[in-house]
Design a protein around this nucleic acid. Structure first.
Length: 271
DNA sequence: CACAAGACCTGGCAGC
DNA sequence: TGCTGCCAGGTCTTGT
């Protein structure tokens, strides 16, 4: 699913329709999410006005008058805006029914995602308080990566996917950014130079920004708030391209596994 | 502290 | 047409 660009695409899609709306009903069809959805969430949320829709890493924060609804899309989740009378489909677990006759509907076949109400301040919540900087903010650069890499023998790919180091970089965009930066994903994090980390940080920002502009990457599950896919999949240079020619040098892209995750790279272009 | 591996789930697909 | 096994965009927890 959803890495940062898909979550940001969802945020931008739903915000105009839900901000300044009142939650007039909450329908829960499945409580067994990553965090079980308890009745106090419904009780707390009902009748409140939505103030804003923000994002922290891959979490969506629906800010209410009192507290915040945290939404995470896990691997297979999506949020859609539908008319109130739209019949639910399989795996449509939660509806927030709004005063304007629309409904924010959470769908997640694998149930790795969550919908969870918390009291403010959200930043202090255990799910959010250890998160690293936002990759598209001023707080993030090559220096941050280099410092955090200091004692770490894990692969550089694993480092940039660690949400305590930087948020939002999932498996697809980690592969893509390392390709664009010309860095072998298997390299030990502490062996990578500051110059290379500066290039890598720049490429992470670039690939995430480009993906947001395209509405994210749809491989199978992800849909935008209007039910349409994102279009960045066609721009992927290495992810999913095992044995296909490198777009730079033509050598076959190689697939391997790093920390249990599919990893794609060009042995000619990445060192 | 750093790291690897397992756990959580369902659905889609390849191969037999 | 089944059935089986493997794979998938993400974290969190456990054990070394």
């Amino acid at each position: 699913m959803p890495e940062l660009p898909e979550v940001e695409t969802t945020r931008r899609g739903i915000a105009p329709a839900v901000v300044q709306q009142r939650i007039v009903d909450v329908k829960v069809r499945e409580r067994r999410l990553r965090i079980p959805l308890t009745p106090d969430t419904e009780r707390a949320v009902l009748g409140q006005w939505i103030q804003a829709v923000e994002r922290r890493g891959k979490y969506l924060l629906i800010a209410l008058e009192r507290g915040v609804v945290l939404v995470h899309l896990g691997m297979s989740g999506s949020l859609r805006l539908v008319a109130v009378d739209t019949p639910p489909r399989r795996h449509d677990h939660v509806d927030l029914v709004l005063g304007n006759g629309r409904c924010l509907r959470f769908h997640d076949p694998r149930r790795f995602g969550l919908v969870h109400w918390i009291e403010s301040p959200a930043e202090a919540h255990p799910l959010l308080c250890h998160l690293g900087p936002e990759p598209l903010s001023e707080q993030f650069d090559g220096q941050v990566l280099y410092q955090r890499a200091a004692k770490r023998r894990c692969a550089v790919k694993t480092l940039i996917m660690d949400s305590r180091v930087v948020v939002g970089v999932g498996n697809i965009y980690a592969n893509e950014a390392l390709f664009l930066a010309g860095i072998d994903p298997r390299r030990a994090a502490r062996e990578v130079s500051i110059e290379q980390y500066q290039a890598l940080a720049e490429r992470i920002r670039q690939v995430l920004s480009a993906a947001i502009e395209q509405g994210g990457t749809t491989l199978r599950d992800f849909v935008r708030e209007d039910g349409n896919p994102g279009y960045f999949a066609q721009a992927l240079r290495v992810y999913g391209r095992d044995q296909k020619p490198c777009v730079i040098c033509g050598a076959p892209i190689v697939q391997t596994r790093i920390a249990q995750r599919a990893t794609y790279f060009c042995t000619q272009c990445q060192h």
